[in-house]
Design a protein around this nucleic acid. Structure first.
Ligand code: ZN
Ligand code: ZN
Ligand code: ZN
Ligand code: ZN
Lengths: 160, 160
DNA sequence: ACCGATATGTTATAATGTAACAGGCGCTGG
DNA sequence: CCAGCGCCTGTTACATTATAACATATCGGT
């Protein structure tokens, strides 16, 4: 998965993510309740990380009973079941591009437009595993967040 | 730089870090004022990331005038001059093991004892740069934080 | 229908981080 | 000397992110 191209059909993109989530939850015997489902949809609304309080505000406008624990619990569920990732650099959350297989996730974050793309590249994981092993360290989880300019913003002249 | 061994002389370790900081600041024409110096010492107190409010509390006990901006400003200075790194996963700060050359920093974080080690391994940087390039992404900064068990804690049986 | 487990509602508060402005200190040019 | 300027610090107030704790509701199996 990489950055969405301009002609990208985002409706289909969201439907795909929701279908994948449904099936992942069925597989794991997890309950994708209405509020969890809605939070996941909102996280997928655009290809950018979303803050918990932004989600909260949207939910409130939509008439949900909304207090911080509401959204944090939903996010916690989605994290535990590998449906979203947390971007530590931004205290924000983004949809997982390939749920099903638990994985750490590595992200490219555009400083100009805010877009996030999940990097499905094992060479990075491998380099980390090897470097850790050389230091006698056994890895359980890794966080990789790379800031820079996405292809569109480079073309647009954002960085020059 | 890796995890400190048991017979590690931490006094010398701190002195070395402070000397390196002095010289880096002289080089850059930056002023390592008493409060900045003290914050850096406190960050180096052990080989674990320290939170801003923990630093604040210590400073207060030592009689400094201490409000959040005090410590955040010192940390900001130390970050800008490459003397500390911020650990995004923990909202905490840790001393830089090789100041002088600006670099992103990659960290091994032990989940058991809390120790942090800065990875000076270019293979990870290279893998990331290559993966980013394949996606048409130009990197400006990267955050790599690897959680797991350090050699000592593995030996101690923490993970079994 | 009942029960235990899970999910949600609600209130309050903790933890982390910034904005904004006032005052001080040290250098530099007159 | 001293006026002006830049940087550093003090102080107050506030913004943002996250969790604790307890009450209530809902689901699913018996
Ligand atoms: Zn899309
Ligand atoms: Zn962009
Ligand atoms: Zn040491
Ligand atoms: Zn350890």
């Amino acid at each position: 998965m990489s950055f969405p191209v301009p002609q990208h059909d985002h409706g289909a993109c969201i439907r795909g993510a929701m279908d994948a989530a449904e099936s992942a939850c069925r597989m794991q015997g997890a309950r994708l309740t209405p509020i969890r489902r809605r939070v996941l949809e909102l996280v997928w609304e655009n290809h950018q990380p979303v803050g918990a309080y932004a989600l909260l505000e949207t939910l409130a406008k939509e008439g949900w009973s909304a207090a911080p624990p509401t959204v944090y619990r939903a996010l916690d569920f989605l994290l535990r079941h590998g449906l979203v990732h947390r971007i530590a650099l931004q205290n924000a959350f983004v949809g997982c591009s390939h749920p099903g297989e638990p994985h750490a996730g590595a992200f490219l974050l555009c400083s100009h437009c805010g877009a996030a793309a999940e990097l499905a590249d094992l060479s990075v994981d491998r380099a980390i595993a090897e470097a850790a092993a050389r230091n006698g360290f056994s890895v359980t989880r890794q966080t990789i967040e790379v800031e820079g300019l996405c292809p569109a913003c480079r073309a647009g002249g954002a960085g020059r």
